[in-house]
Design a protein around this nucleic acid. Structure first.
Lengths: 324, 324
DNA sequence: CTGAAAGCGCTTACAG
DNA sequence: CTGAAAGCGCTTACAG
């Protein structure tokens, strides 16, 4: 039998109204009443039915997702985070609508808008402000609640992992466009290498397209121009896949001759790909949280979600350093 | 004011129960009563509230989506169809769960399962049959309701479009794996070329990986081996993007020297890409329909959704044929 | 701080 | 074939 609010109320000896209040964190509940109810809920493993909540709430929450014009909606990363967002909203039974790039004709009432960081973010925030719609952002901005992966820390982790494997000639492939995440990943990587105890190292940084083909071309051209790195850190897994493709075409053995480390954690992209993984479910969870909180005009919060290195077959010890 | 079932009932002069019955297509409604209600619904632009339906339905429908082990869940195509499916289920307020490759440990009751065609489809159908779970398939199979794009017809359309532009040396890039859709696209393409009034043509067919990189390599190698087609038909847009990348690297002008036509209609993948477009929203709609109908043990149906050629900048008239 | 009650928009036995 | 009524699982004024 599905366990409902009524059952909780019965076992806790209170009314369903009170149970509802504790579920929704209303302040008007006595501390010990709250404790009792919470205890019963936990004991029974109760979870509110999102469908019922949505139906009974007078004003339904609908969240708009506003994707920038430049965002590649077909990229694997976007794919994964999009699914995570939808799943999150499904759990909360929140309606969502994907907003067109041009918001002008949208008449529908939006309770809040979730955005990805994009070039014209300031303009977008102004638009929302004008319409009085609160929002949250996946990315960085001082004037709005944000959530982002720890790009800088991830860059450091990448460096540390490669250093631990003895790598001494590092290449960083990243995107030509000035994305904050790309800047941060490169900065973290560079900083950690500079601080290396075994002697300060500076990576070669090459910039190009962020897709598989971009990574392919960067890697191929770098190799043909004589670059012979021991370790390669790519700003995205897509670029890493491209780089691996180029290395394969060039007959370079991975990881024997060179190690490759990606960023994002989309290991399904390539069997055995090592990557600095984002915690995408957490990012999605926080993002929806922030957007929903923004409806209540909560304080602006900035959340940084940790990343971690996923080991893989593309990572190995560095080849020996030639005697100087 | 939101328009509800009660308002319809009032204006149609019937009870809400009756309105509900016509909404749900129950047979026990008089023909003219049904007509009246339908008319009022249309006049008011009424749409049932999916949340309310879901809540009041005694047994909630939950649809499982069972993705094959070999399916690339990060591909743009999968991406798009997945989103279309979720949107469809959102509209119907149907719960959905993504099923693990191994169904054995799944205890949750599934009302129906939606699958993509995959290598071990027979085995999967047997599993469902054993568990008494109905299903539907995106792809082809005689024993279950299916929906698929018109792959064969799309192959023909591709040929006809290229012939109309005067192309006379055709290359078809496709996947090495024996997917039914790939077989059908190639078959339609080949058949239409063979029937060409200006004289029967046979395309060169090259097989490789289905990704961007696969298309890149096939195209590059073909060109380096001396192939000089006037028109190229790729079995997927991803391959087309790869082929375009290779042509760019080789300094071949598109469409002046060679035309490229993809398949799927994911034009966001590459600005100006011409493609035989699938009607993905319709496919998703039909798929969810079939799965839901399967719950009622409806007859097996096979639906083929039409495709159409999307023009684009990668398509142009063929270069002149050298005198023989 | 808390309870009793109405209501969200639909569906579905139960009668007739 | 159709209506009246109960109910899905919650939330929220309204009283107290």
């Amino acid at each position: 039998m599905k366990i409902t609010i009524g059952e909780i109320a019965r076992q806790a000896g209170v009314s369903t109204g009170t149970v509802s209040r504790v579920i929704n964190g209303k302040p008007t509940v006595a501390t010990d009443t709250r404790a009792t109810v919470l205890a019963v809920m936990k004991k029974l493993g109760y979870e509110p039915d999102p469908v019922a909540r949505e139906l009974s709430r007078r004003t339904k929450h609908t969240l708009g997702i506003w994707v920038g014009a430049g965002e590649n909606r077909l990229s694997p990363y976007f794919n994964v985070i999009w699914r995570a967002l939808l799943r999150e909203m499904q759990v909360r039974a929140t309606q969502f609508v994907e907003l067109p790039v041009d918001l002008t004709p949208v008449r529908r009432k939006l309770d809040a808008v979730l955005m990805f960081h994009c070039a014209d973010i300031d303009q977008r925030l102004a638009t929302l402000w004008r319409r009085g719609v609160p929002g949250a952002l996946i990315g960085h901005h001082p004037n709005i609640s944000c959530v982002a992966p720890d790009d800088m820390g991830g860059g450091r982790l990448a460096a540390e992992r490669l250093l631990a494997l003895g790598h001494w000639d590092l290449l960083h492939l990243t995107v030509a466009d000035e994305h904050q995440w790309a800047v941060d990943r490169a900065a973290g990587f560079t900083a950690a290498l500079a601080e290396h105890r075994g002697g300060s190292l500076a990576p070669t940084i090459l910039r190009g397209g962020g897709s598989v083909l971009g990574g392919y071309r960067l890697m191929r051209d770098a190799w043909l121009q004589g670059h012979r790195p021991t370790g390669i850190f790519c700003a995205t897994d897509e670029m890493a896949v491209g780089a691996l493709g180029a290395l394969a075409d060039l007959g370079v053995a991975v990881p024997e001759q060179v190690s490759v480390l990606g960023f994002d954690g989309l290991v399904d992209l390539y069997p055995g790909l090592a990557s600095v993984a984002q915690d995408i479910p957490s990012i999605a969870h926080e993002a929806v949280n922030l957007a929903l909180n923004a409806i209540e005009r909560d304080a602006i919060r900035h959340v940084i979600v940790p990343v971690q290195v996923l080991e893989g077959a593309t990572l190995g010890p560095a080849r020996a350093r030639p005697a100087r």
